[in-house]
Nucleic acid binder design. Sequence first.
RNA 1: GCCGAAGUGGCGGAAUUGGUAGACGCGCUGGACUCAAAAUCCAGUGAGGCUCAAACCUCGUGCCGGUUCGAGUCCGGCCUUCGGUACCA
Length: 828
Amino acid sequence: MTTFFINLLRIMKYPFQEIELKWQKFWEEKKVYKTDLTDLEKKIYCLVMFIYPSAAKMHIGHWYNYGPTDSWARFKKLRGYNVFEPIGYDAFGLPAENYAIKTGIHPQDSTLQNINDIRAMVKHMGGMYDWDSELMTCAPEYYRWNQWLFLQLYKKGLAYRKNAPVNWCPSCQTVLAREQVLNDGSCERCGTTVVQKNLTQWFFKITDYAEELLDGLNKIDWPEKTKTMQINWIGKSIGAEVDFSVSGTDDKIKVFTTRPDTLFGATYMVLAPEHPLVDKLTTSEFKKKVDEYKDSIKSMTEIDRTSTVKEKTGIFTGAYAINPVTNKYIPIWIADYVLMTYGTGAIMAVPGQDERDWEFAEKFDLPIIRTVQTPEGFEGKAYIEDGPAINSEFLNGFYVEDAKKKIIKWLEEKGIGKHTINYRLRDWLISRQRYWGTPIPIIHCDECGLVPVPEDQLPVVLPYNVNFKPDGGSPLASNSEFVNTKCPKCGSDAKRDVDTMDTFVDSSWYYLRYLNPKYDKGMFDPELGKAWTPVDMYVGGAEHAVMHLLYARFIHKFLRDIGLVISDEPFQKLIHQGTITNLGAKMSKSKGNVVDPNQFVYEYGADVFRMYMMFMGPYELGGDWSDKGIVGVDRFVQRTYSLFNNHRNYSIDFPSKERYDLNGLSEVEKAIYRKVNQTLEKIQTEVEHFRFNTAVAALMELLNELKSLDECVNNFKTFVLERFALMFAPLAPHLGEECWYLLGYEKSLFENPKWFEVDKSALIEDKVNVAVQVNGKLRATIEVPINSDKEATAKAAKSDERVIKHIQDKEIVKEIFVPNKIYNIVVK
RNA sequence: GCCGAAGUGGCGGAAUUGGUAGACGCGCUGGACUCAAAAUCCAGUGAGGCUCAAACCUCGUGCCGGUUCGAGUCCGGCCUUCGGUACCA
């Protein structure tokens, strides 16, 4: 007997395993999510940042990124848009290679295995991805076009080689990424102190696009925060370049300054220790100390060097430069706070107007001259605000902006300086001394030099057999079959470039490849690229605010310049999902605070888990993980299922009307009719703006209202249930389909998208509650007919006992009336 | 240090352009069902005061001040937390 009842309850409970699988199979077999890319009317390209398959599992962050975004896409689909929603794998990269070094499992094998596992999980989530457009960047038919892109950039002079410092571990004999260097500057693998080493590297000349990358930000709908970060990253500053002669030589030192107006106050110069002139200028007397100083900073990262807490260090070179306006000799120093990578690698130091220079001058007892009048009572050190120039001869009295213009004119006339715009943005270093990436399509020939691989010989296939264990140099160098080749130009023996590309190259154009990943006549189908970009909605983490999102914008603009796309920007609208933390910290293996989503997916089902992630809070905020509320969403789903289970075939047996006249409805029906239409309107605006938490809450409210559904006539019930199912479907797609099916429909909802119009006339209540305040304090709420005028509301308000109590024997000074909302009586 | 975001019940969080603070959910309390429990359903639930109870009153959105008939929302000054960034000449 007892067992019987328990079994009965089990039967009644929403069998999510069965139903989710049923619809996943249906969607896939019927290719419900195959997008017709030729249908451009009402097209929407909805993109999520593709998956980095460094582990075989989908973590909470993936679910949080993909689930809600898929719900948005489904909502758009139901509303009649032709939505393209692809998914793929950012499959190259360091983690797979590190894993290989540790375990011996080849990166290709582990990556393909991970992709298979992750694909199954993505399907389990129930996203409406167009599986025909799935791609992975480690496939030759994908990275072939990275190589092609490289050659186009090379042709235009936008891919070039130069020396650049890398983090080098002398023990492992390998280049390290910044994340492989620990905070104390040691190698994460062996603990040896990492040093900076110069290597010849490939760069993409993103700086050529600096101005346009800055400009373009005005045209796109991105979070202000992200745009600001890009603006700061590009770091445009306007100033001047000035040449300083070096005493006793013909050498000139070029400096960049944003404050040319302070030239009269330049009392010394500082070069970056790596500056090419340092060795030449240093006098024999100081050579030893300078060399020692250079050695002492060799193992310092840029972060160490530029730390604000560290005391200033530096050393005199023994040489002097000549200040071009005062003709005075000023000492030339070197110091680590000047970086070779910014500006010209040399500064004129003006301690009077620069805090860093002041600190340095004070420490090393260098002269300080103020060239801007400080305001009365100013007691600080360097004065960086505006003011009239002093101690500056022909500039005296001019304020900063005017003084700048005047001195730049003077410098230009004398031919020793010019107006300059400088960017903080550096060119993009794309070569990696790694295995698991796209080979660089260049051949080194002793006769012809650098020779690009002819386009018809692409792809340069990444060989499987290499020694990817770190033993110096690029792993590809270990495969002689790969390395040794013939020069395409002269036919003599030559060697292939053994470096691979940064994976940010892969992710800079994948959204174009999705449109037809099998296209073999080019990087992507240009017709589709032109029609489907910019991407309408791009959703991904804020950690990509600068690098990925800037590189992709650069590449897109380049592709436009060579005629492959016509849009200026790749991503029109951008949304960042928040970060889900656990116990106050980002989830990571090393912290041991990773939450496995599968335990919840297996216990409650994909729909419940997705919906719970949406219900947790504002999408863009993220928050700390807690599974406390998931039972609430589960109950909601259970109640929904039993509601529809109890109304099977209603759409067939009791077809509803398009709309109902309020006057013909009972009081209960009227209330429900209003609520349904209000909810429909609410869902529309909330889901549209990624406010899923309030959308779910609105549906829960509606379900609560439906407790009295039994008191309604049958065809009215159908009206309500159909709308409920439709609103529910984007948020919980499997059960949404099932509800629609339970109502008696043969065609799947997402196969035959549908949306109901709001009956606006039902949104208006006929009675409203007006808050009556006395001196701004709530004293009563009264119910009045909607749109009651001031007089009528006042009459009702002032006859309420609770109000009378507070206004009797008092003088009414003022009365404020906001129709349908507030009646405030101000008394003395 | 600088830039950005956020501080609301026991908890996650709601709250158009300033207009009834606490929607929705969790938890908790009481009740129904049950031999009992679980599940489910119903009711209550910011704090305090006064009440047998209700009514009612006071306080209440990190802190201090301001503007306003009216402030979670606007302004000024702080505090805390979380992200981002690192001497950019």
